[in-house]
Simulated assay, not measured.
Amino acid sequence: MDNLLVGKTAIVTGAARGIGAAIAGCFAQEGANVVLNSRSDSTALKETIAAIEANGGKAVASVGDVGDARYVPSLVATALERFGTLDILVNNAGVIKDRPLAFLKESEWDEVMNVNLKGAYLCSKAAIRPMLQKRAGRIINIASITALSGRPGQTNYGAAKAGLIGFTKSLAREAASHNVLVNAAVVGLIDTRMTRQIPRDTLEQICGMVPLGRIGTPRDVANVCLFLASELSSYVTGTTINVSGGGYI
């Protein structure tokens, strides 16, 4: 451990498992206090927090929907009340509702937009206020290469993630004068519960199109987020870092 985040407090949304859990664990390893958000008080959330604590980290859960404006203020309040500060926000929470546009239900469009894009807006708006006051902070948005290259059946998801990239760039300009840095990690094919459901032959075909020739791990994403959350990235804002093994060049 290099203690890159000692004394910092981070909120990670969608942190029960997968990429979010890896980010939370990585930050805790580097000394951060971590607030893990999840839509439900699941076994996975409890196991992730237990694993962080077993390794000497400090973590607390906050259960709720990031797309709900009534919930989000309590998420930020949890960080401030438990740890006294809020330094880092990772907008990772997301859902997919894949369907060709001709058959895409309005409710499926709305849910994806509500969690993936509105959730980032609500959380960032609540989190940025204490950051602006102390003139320091990091906001990291987890986007997707679907926003850059498109993918059949993901018009809602692609639109939400593309919107998140635009949101990142504009907020970075707004917040730069107060030393609040805003960046995005644009994620490709990562080994998560969702990708494990892809048939093996299809997954091998997809990996064959990735220049590095393998599927990424949640830790690959967490490492990039650690860079963006730490002082190593003190002159980096408004950018998108592609974490796709070269899948989008």
Rank of each mutant, 00 (worst) to 15 (best):
L171R: 03
A159S: 06
N3Y: 14
S38R: 02
G137P: 13
V112A: 04
S38G: 08
K125N: 09
V221F: 02
V72F: 08
E30D: 04
I23R: 10
S230E: 05
L45P: 15
Y121A: 04
G150F: 10
G238F: 04
G31W: 09
L101W: 11
S230H: 07
A126V: 03
L36G: 00
E47V: 05
I23Q: 08
G166Q: 05
V35S: 00
I139A: 07
V66E: 05
T239D: 01
L226W: 13
G137C: 09
S233K: 02
L226T: 09
N242E: 14
L86D: 00
E204A: 10
Q133F: 15
E111N: 10
F167V: 07
Q133S: 15
L171K: 09
A61Y: 01
L226C: 11
T240R: 02
I241M: 00
S234K: 09
L4V: 08
A175F: 04
E106R: 13
S170P: 08
V115T: 07
Y235M: 15
D2M: 12
I139Q: 09
G94A: 11
F103A: 14
T239I: 08
A176R: 06
S230P: 14
L5D: 05
R151N: 14
R173L: 13
V35P: 05
M113R: 09
V182W: 04
S177P: 15
L132G: 03
V236R: 14
S38C: 04
S170G: 01
S42P: 02
A222E: 13
A147E: 02
G25M: 11
T9G: 11
A59T: 04
L203E: 01
M1G: 15
G166D: 01
A126F: 06
I19E: 00
I128Y: 14
I96V: 14
A77D: 12
T78D: 04
G25K: 11
V60E: 08
I142T: 10
E30R: 02
I128V: 14
I142F: 09
K161T: 03
I88T: 03
T146C: 06
A15T: 08
V34Q: 06
P130T: 10
R151F: 12
Q154E: 11
L171D: 01
I128H: 10
I142Y: 12
A22V: 00
G137E: 14
A24W: 11
K46I: 00
R196I: 01
S149A: 13
M113A: 05
K118N: 12
N55E: 06
A93M: 01
D87F: 00
G56Y: 07
R200L: 11
P218F: 13
I140T: 07
G64S: 06
G246D: 07
V34D: 09
T85A: 00
